[in-house]
């Protein structure tokens, strides 16, 4: 993507290029249409040339069990007994980066340019600048980034920024056989979601709604949920995600203040020295203490001789 599209950049305190008006994109995942086929997982590793190691089963359909540096999206299966209807509901959520408008990873990252946000809303990791500290994991409200065992770099879903930049939809969207994943401008996706939500409400899901959490400024991956009042039913999707106040304190205004504090300590010393001045010891006191006098009377090499005096 053109560098003028990089509207936010990790560890950068100056303003980013912002004169171009580019519409925001979004991926909408309609959980109610998902059949859990994992075609999106396959498409993701196919397009991104990722081949994760074959792991072990933990007795659920989750496979791999969790996101890794080489599995950027994973279907999470949850079984929910609806107390209202008495039905067993199989809630399947495609987990992966949410592409927050206010990304916690970007806020926490200490390496300039290792995490960028594009004008279209995609949050991307630049592994070339990544130093492998893992602060992005500490900053993320959704537990998404993973550090690779192989190269100690952080990885996550790119929202196929390479495809999107040339006008293609993300690989998972292209492959989804039920149309549960759709992609377009964020406004269009909201409109599309509104239609789906109306449909779900007609079918008895009164709490159906859109997951586009305000706590992180909205996201560029959104869900249509049947139970939008309880996102945590969907394998612990955060109910009200925000950048943790601890991360805010760690990476917020305290940092420049701390720098200022250190500078002030140095300046305080300098001005104390120039105003109050140093303390010196009167070394005269020391001389009185000496067992031998410091200045010895040395026999001069030239003697004054008075010829009238009798010689010794």
């Amino acid at each position: 993507m053109a560098t003028q599209d990089v509207i936010a950049r990790s560890a950068t305190t100056t303003e980013r290029p912002s004169i171009r008006e580019i519409g925001e994109v979004a991926k909408l995942i309609d959980v109610s249409k998902c059949i859990g086929c994992k075609a999106c997982q396959v498409a993701c590793s196919e397009w991104n040339d990722l081949r994760d190691e074959v792991g072990t089963s933990n007795g659920t359909y989750d496979n791999p069990i969790d996101l890794t540096a080489e599995s950027w999206t994973v279907m999470k299966f949850a079984e929910y007994e609806n107390p209202g209807s008495g039905n067993l509901e199989w809630l399947i959520r495609k987990d992966g980066c949410m592409h927050c408008a206010d990304p916690g990873c970007l806020k926490a990252c200490p390496a300039p340019g290792a995490i960028v946000k594009y004008a279209n809303g995609i949050v991307d990791f630049n592994q070339d600048h990544c130093i492998g500290c893992g602060y992005c994991i500490t900053g993320c409200p959704f537990d998404i980034p993973r550090i690779s065992e192989k190269d100690k770099k952080a990885y996550k879903c790119t929202l196929c920024s390479d495809r999107v930049s040339v006008g293609l939809e993300p690989a998972c969207v292209k492959t989804c056989p039920t149309g549960a994943i759709v992609f377009g401008s964020k406004d269009d996706m909201k409109d599309h979601a509104a239609g789906r939500i109306a449909d779900l409400k007609e079918r008895g899901f009164d709490q159906a709604g859109l997951y586009d959490p305000d706590g992180v400024g909205g996201t560029h991956v959104m869900y249509v949920l049947h139970h939008a009042d309880q996102p945590s039913l969907y394998n612990d999707l955060p109910n009200e995600p925000t950048i943790s106040p601890l991360v805010g304190l760690w990476k917020g205004v305290t940092k420049p203040l701390a720098l200022l504090g250190m500078g002030a300590a140095v300046l305080a010393g300098f001005f104390h020295y120039t105003r109050v001045g140093p303390i010196r010891v009167e070394e005269e006191d020391d001389k009185a203490e000496l067992s031998e006098p410091v200045v010895h009377q040395v026999d001069p090499s030239v003697h004054v001789v008075d010829p009238k005096e009798p010689r010794p």
Binding site: T138, V247, T254, A258, M262, A265, G269, P278
Partner: peptide, 25 residues
């Protein structure tokens, strides 16, 4: 992460004071 940054700040300011005291006295 937060405590590490706070403790580092306290340590650095303390050492600034320590160094200045050696220059002062």
């Amino acid at each position: 992460s937060l405590l590490h940054a706070i403790a580092a700040f306290v340590l650095i300011v303390s050492i600034i004071v320590h160094i200045y005291a050696a220059i002062w006295i």
